[in-house]
Design a protein around this nucleic acid. Structure first.
Lengths: 264, 264
DNA sequence: CGAGGAATTGAGTAGGTTCAAGGCCGGTGG
DNA sequence: CCACCGGCCTTGAACCTACTCAATTCCTCG
């Protein structure tokens, strides 16, 4: 029952939700399954019958190259819906592994389609959430395409902290960081060796504290400066009023949803 | 009236559309505007009141860095909807320029919301299209993060040809390529100089012909090999049957849409 | 016909990789 | 409880891919 709260937190940041809507979303997240750290949740090429919501822990999407190297695409934190697209996609074009022991709640394709079809505001919130993911991916392209190692590392550390703040997992500048240096390298297109050197430098410069799998940003302003970010990044604000009105109107047009919308 | 045909072509690849639906989509693309080559259509930070569909020409999304360098994120070709997200977004996080003289059709936010709200199959097709964009962005991250210059260039050339094939702009391995080497560099995170050397090599190896702004892939198999791509890339197939059924069902639940859905 | 950007080529440089080795830490089994 | 083991972290040194700087030629457009 608590697993859905991160998703609710995320979505209601984007679009205010009624009690009913909140309940529906939490209702999605009841079918939880535990995974060990380092477990493969979904493999490239798989055809999923259900999507899922990460309800605890951390995971990553990644692609393996033929020579065995890999590129991590995004990290999933609690409340991340993966894969919203599953009800359209034929086969996954990437894999998903847990980083630490995690829980995730499976959601039947039909339940998602019904929810999206009958609840415009939820649908909009999910859209928005997908847009944020896309925005983060664009930021990643910019980082990997045009920035040096120092900037990339600074950017990723900031992103990780901000995302956890956005769902209320932390208030300060400090988060658990279960990622290894090889994983950071796979994310940023760098080698573990070089990640290490950059982090050493950051520590010497008093920019971060990082030990025992725990990260603290000591000088956010300089980190953002190094990362080349400005604080508009991530669109973390909610939907503007006119958007909300548009979807409210659609909502009122809706026929009453079937009593049980999950079993289509 | 003809401007909408590329969008129709793209969407009906994804989800079969009725005559009515086709007409609605074409109806979106009537309000066309011409732009010169190299014109800025939308600037980072802008708050759009309308989205648009590129109906002719070519454009690119990009971000400028503080030092003046830039990263091109994606190219827009006819039929590309940009920005579908506009009805949610507050401010653009990137700019859009034309590459060559282009036409684009403005689409009011309300028209998009109505269309998506009342026509589940169109909505699904737009979702799918957004997913393809996301898939391409993931591919870009992999390319820029993990592949060398040769692979990146091969990958981009393949992508450009395939996308134009997917909307029926070309049948063979040959396309007009209005991109300059600096633009290719900005796309792939490389310098113009290095792009040039890679292209020279490709020409010497008989992999491509490239002159007079016209590209021909002479040896696709080897290019794909170099790029590290396999042909499942891009999910260019249509929606699987079960997905279509899901959305057909939603479609039948719909109340009859208002006579004129564009003026809300 | 002149101007400005693009394409091309060469030479020197640098940021990040590769290879290698030692120390640390957490988990596992005896 | 301790010893072992594997993966991570750390550091050094050599190397390489792609960058930088620079000069020349080519195109295209006005």
């Amino acid at each position: 029952m608590t697993g859905g709260r991160w998703l609710v937190a995320k979505l209601s940041n984007l679009m205010p939700l009624s009690t009913d809507e909140t309940r529906l979303i939490e209702g999605l997240c009841t079918n939880e399954q535990r995974f060990d750290a380092g477990a493969t949740v979904v493999e490239e090429g798989a055809v999923l019958q259900s999507g899922f919501v990460l309800t605890a822990g951390m995971a990553c999407r990644y692609r393996l190259l033929r020579d065995g190297r890999r590129q991590i695409l995004t990290f999933l934190i609690p409340g991340d819906f993966c894969d919203l697209h599953v009800f359209l996609t034929k086969a996954m074009d990437h894999s998903i592994d847990t980083i630490v022991a995690s829980r995730l709640a499976w959601v039947a394709r039909e339940a998602v389609v019904d929810l999206v079809g009958h609840h415009p505001r939820i649908s909009a919130a999910l859209w928005w959430s997908a847009m944020q993911e896309a925005a983060m991916l664009r930021e990643r392209v910019v980082a990997v395409g045009r920035r040096n190692a120092r900037s990339r590392v600074a950017y990723l550390l900031c992103e990780l902290v901000w995302r956890q703040r956005a769902i209320g997992m932390t208030a300060g500048n400090s988060i658990p960081l279960p990622l290894t240096q090889p994983q950071l390298g796979d994310t940023l297109g760098l080698t573990p060796v070089h990640i290490n050197r950059v982090l050493q430098q950051f520590r010497r410069d008093g920019l971060v504290r990082l030990k025992q799998r725990h990260l603290t940003l000591l000088d956010i302003d300089r980190l953002m400066e190094i990362a080349g970010l400005d604080d508009s990044y991530l669109h973390l604000g909610g939907a503007p009023d006119y958007t909300q009105r548009l979807f409210d109107r659609l909502d009122q047009e809706q026929p009453p949803p079937p009593a049980n919308s999950g079993t289509g």
